[in-house]
Every structure is written in C-alpha cells, then in structure tokens.
Design a protein around this nucleic acid. Structure first.
Lengths: 334, 334
DNA sequence: TTGTACGCGTTATCAT
DNA sequence: ATGATAACGCGTACAA
C-alpha cells in the first residue's frame, strides 16, 4: 500500500542527517538533547519502524531463532513451543515457527527457508531429518534438537529418558496386579517409540511375564490408532486387563473404543498414556500418564540455544520423567 | 559459525560475473548452457542459499504474510493456522506465526515485529486490538481478520454467524424437550461470545421459556471454567437438564465435574459445545457441538489475502455453521 | 551473451 | 556534535 517510512524520511522531516537519526535510534551518546527530542517526535508522528532486512544485512545477525516444529495443531509440540517462546522472552532474540509435517521433504524445505532468512540458530522439534543432515546443519550454526537423540550431538539434544518413562508406566500396572498388558506403540521407526517399547518389555521381563507380540499394536500417534488397536484385540479375542499407550492421543482413542464396547475404565481395564497433555487432567476418567515436562523442555531448549549464541557453556541438567497417577488405573483382581 | 555462501563466492568459483549467476538463479534467459551448468553445479556444491534479507531489500517485497495468533497451544487457533498454511501452499507466499496472548500489549508488539520484517500482509486471529488500530493497519497494507467483525472492514473480516450457531445449539436442546438449559458463556467483552449468548436467548424466547440469569455462568474459555460452572450450579441447588457451553473446552470441564458428582451424560444431563475441536469426536461420549469450519476459515483467510495481494476481487461466500449432533445429547422426559 | 554499476535501508567509520 | 560515505547481498538497467 503506502511505502514504509525510512530513516531518510525522518532525517528530511527533522532537518538533520541520517547518521544523527541512526545514532538516536541506537542509543548512542553524542547528540544534542534538543535534536534528540525533535527527531523522536518526528519518529513518533510518522510511525517509523526500522527495516529488519536492512539491519539484518548490515549487522550480519537477525536476532532470530527458527523453530522447526512438525504440526502446529499437535498438542504435544505446541506445549513445547510455548516453553520456547517463554524461554526467549526478554533475551532480545525472537523465535519464529515453521512446520515440517513429519515429512523429510517439507522439513528440508522449511530448514532452507529458515537459513535464507538468516536465522542465528535453529531448534528442531522431532521430525525425520537424517542424522547426517543434522550434523551438517550443526556445522553451520547452533542447533538444538528436542525429542531426539543424535549420537555425536549429545550437547545439542534435549531428550527425556523414554525407556524409564515406559518402564514406570508398565511397572505401575504390574504393581496393580495386571499381567496381560496391551501396548499401543507409535511408529516404530521413531527412536523414542522404540525406547518406550523397550521400557515396556523391560518391566515385563523383570516381572517374569512372557512377552506376547499379539499384545502390541503399532499405531500412528493418532486417536484413530487407539480405536483400531482396541478393535483388533477385541475382535481377535485377545484378552487384556490393562493398556499402556505410547502417547495420550492414542489412549484417548482407545478409551472411546472401550466405551463403545461397554468396557469400563478403570473397572474392567486400566489405561495409561504418555505425555501428560493438558487435556489429560480433564479426561474421563482423568488419565494416568507419563508426565513429560513439555513446557520446561521448550524453555530449556531456548536457554541452551541462548548459551550457544553467547558462546557460554552450562551443564546439562537432565529433565526427569515421572508418572502422573490419576483415575484411569486401578487394582486388578485375578 | 561459518559465513554464508554468497553470489560473489559462486561467481568467483565458477569464473563468471555475479550478474550471470543472478540471471541463472532468476531463471532469466540469455545465458549459455555450458555456463549455466557450471554455475548450477557450483551452487549445488557450495550449498548456496539466497539471502532473503537482501532479496527483500532490493525487491521491496518479502513474499511473506504475518499471522498474529493468540496462543499456539490453543486447539481452536491451531486448526485455523493449519488452514492458513494450506491456503498459502504453492502460492509463493509463506506465512509466519507470532503470538499475542490475548494481551493488547503483546499483540501490538507482535504486529510491530511483523511490520519491521516487511510482511506483505497480516492476518489477525481474534485478539483484542482496538478497532481504530485495525483501521490504521488496514491503511498501510492488506489485512484479514478472522473471528472478529469490525465495522468498516467488512471486506477484510472472516467471521461466522455466532448468533445462528448458538441458536441452533439451543434449539436442538429445546427440541429434545429440555426446558432448564444452563449456558456457560465466555468472557462477555468478546463480541462473538455476546452473539452466542444472544442466540441462546433468542431460541429461549422463541420457545416462550423465560430467561433465568442464574443459569448463565461467565467463564474464561478454559476447562476449569466448565468445572466451576457446574460447581456453582450444583452447590446452589440450581436445577438443569441440559448445558450449552460457548466452547468445547468449557464443555470438557463441565463433563468432568458432572462425572465427579455422579451425574451421567447424556442420561441425566445433555451437553452441547461450540467449535467442534478435533478432540470432540473422541470425547466421552462424543460431543454434540456447533461445527466451526476452522480449517476452511484459515484456508479462506489465506485466499482472500492472496486476492488482496494480487489486487483481485472475489465475492465473499460466507462460511456456514452447522450442528454436529453426536452422543452427548438426548431426549428429556418431563 | 556477458559484465559494470547503481540502489534498496541500515549501521559504522571516517572526516569535519 | 554532526554529516558524508562505504559497506552488507542482491536484482537489474545499461553498456559492451
């Protein structure tokens, strides 16, 4: 529409040179108070906003960190994103968000867009980018990975002990007397999913309960996957008294499918999720789930990024998982 | 870390001038095939990415549209955001997202950041910016408003008939024989909330049922508000056989509070929400709710923005609300 | 067909 | 204390 106001316009209007205006803008000293006032008022009046592209170009830094998330609409990643936003607030750096949709192609395109925009650093939430590509990125500028573990990039990965989390969940069910525990896994090419699967098996074998592959369903992190898991098991006549789902969304779907079949939770079947999404507290019944400190993860990722940008170092205090025991699990009578 | 590769580097490496490289990059003709090949291979080899800031500066356009959303973690806005992303895909324009947190101060700051970054247009989802400010923005560049109606900016507002939606919801409950219908409203300074309240009252008066202010609770769009509404009504001994909540999240909270009191849905109380969030299909029982075509709204907002950017015009086909009748409502025996 | 030179808006280094 | 002026990386009109 209307051309943006530039420093030149300010200078002309205030009757000074552009360097004077620039000095005032950058809080440099050495400028007479009366001119400062005059210029400031012109800036106010014309509604001047500095052109970030020009600043970026000459300064060589954008004071911006790109965040590659997979899906804006995912409750999991949006919690982390909130934490990232909070972690950068007041730092002078601004995060901007793009989506990769769990597709290597989209992710690569998104990363390219971020690089073209001269991001000072990049935070990657999950995704499927190959390790080699991640290493290459890390050679160019600071990166932080959330939710993945990349060997050789330990210092740049913020991840949580999925093995431990799944172990805690399964162990909880075992302690309640359950023996036939179904596991709704996520996509098994994801390392964290594999870890959760391993934690489930570890608890089982520790309790000397034989592993039954029929009790494992490979889902896709969606509510529908949870429904399909229950349908598979029930229609195949497979017996179970408890379910451990690899994320809350699949637990939600499973819950609905159980309801449809008249199977009560927790009276007939106990249910455990993973992630502790905000909605799980209001689930029916409130869902027992492995708590991932999503907001804190985001916050921490932002802080680690700031440390890298400022060439500082600080030790990585690992974030802990814990089980949020609520009302979807109960004692099983044999 | 390592300095970014520039056109200059490519030119030196390939033994040509920078303008030749630029021509190739911009798909201009008039360049010998062998040089093109040579340059292309050098670009590939050095991993060149154009500097968007420089392009932006010289072209005078960023090919970017800013999206001011209120809360990344809100399921409502993230669905719209998904639609916006889809609406821009393949257009050459890229949306970038910032958050206003429903605070005028944050929103103003976010808008400033977008202006500094030379956005070609801005899409605003909800929020509390005063109308005058919106008019001022519209004078500077193309804007689109989603979820608000601003007089004088009708062409730039994408909103849905909230009165109609609330009327449909309430009418549905009345048709099922309910007479005592509680309404959990949102924050009553929001115009859409007021409209929904008005639709509720309209259906009531049409059915000649006197309006009872005790049956209205002003919530804050959160699950907790739904819980508090039920607690207020039950502890005050106020009778009701149905509830219409002004958004799904408050309906979720109400559902949990009812469960805690042993009140069944839909056997004892019917429940209707508003928005039709993705999760509502998997709610227990699946929630009857007013469907807002959130994704389509985002998509349409993007398309309208593209039309403005291209100086085109197209008629505004209004998006329709409809009621998604599921299992949380049933006939009421008097 | 190719190269030179200018300008986009800003900061920073010089003189003055 | 202030004002020219040279970069930053890119696109493009113009010259060769």
């Amino acid at each position: 529409m209307t051309r943006n106001v530039t420093i030149k316009d300010i200078a002309r209007e205030a009757g000074v040179s552009i360097s004077t205006v620039s000095r005032i803008l950058n809080h440099a000293p050495l400028v007479r108070e009366e001119k400062r006032q005059k210029v400031l008022s012109v800036i106010e009046q014309l509604g001047y906003q500095p052109n970030a592209s020009a600043q970026n170009l000459v300064r060589g830094t954008s004071m911006t960190v790109g965040v590659l998330t997979q899906d804006i609409a995912s409750p999991f990643y949006s919690e982390v994103a909130r934490g990232i936003e909070a972690g950068f607030s007041g730092s002078g750096y601004q995060p901007i968000f793009v989506n990769g949709h769990w597709e290597v192609q989209d992710e690569t395109a998104a990363i390219s867009a971020l690089i073209r925009r001269q991001m000072d650093g990049i935070i990657i939430l999950g995704g499927r980018l190959p390790e080699t590509q991640l290493h290459a990125l890390n050679a160019r500028f600071p990166i932080m990975m959330v939710g993945r573990h990349i060997s050789g990039l330990e210092e740049h990965c913020l991840h949580i002990d999925d093995l431990e989390g799944a172990y805690l969940a399964t162990r909880h069910l075992l302690d309640l007397g359950h023996q036939r525990i179904g596991h709704i896994a996520g996509i098994l090419t994801h390392t964290d999913v594999v870890q959760r699967f391993a934690g489930y098996r570890m608890a089982l074998s520790e309790a000397r309960i034989p592993f039954d592959p029929e009790l494992v369903y490979e889902g896709e992190f969606t509510e529908s996957s949870g429904i399909l898991a229950i349908e598979r098991w029930v229609s195949s006549g497979i017996h179970f008294s408890a379910i451990f789902a690899a994320n809350d969304q699949m637990a939600y779907g499973a819950r609905l499918a159980l309801y449809r079949r008249g199977i009560r939770v927790p009276e007939d079947v106990s249910l455990v999720g993973y992630d502790d999404l905000p909605a799980s507290r209001f689930f029916l019944p409130p869902l027992t789930t492995v708590h991932q400190p999503l907001f804190e993860m985001g916050e921490k990722a932002a802080h680690c990024m700031l440390n890298q940008l400022r060439d500082q170092h600080d030790p990585m205090h690992p974030l802990q998982v814990r089980l949020s025991v609520r009302e979807s699990t109960r004692y099983h009578h044999r």
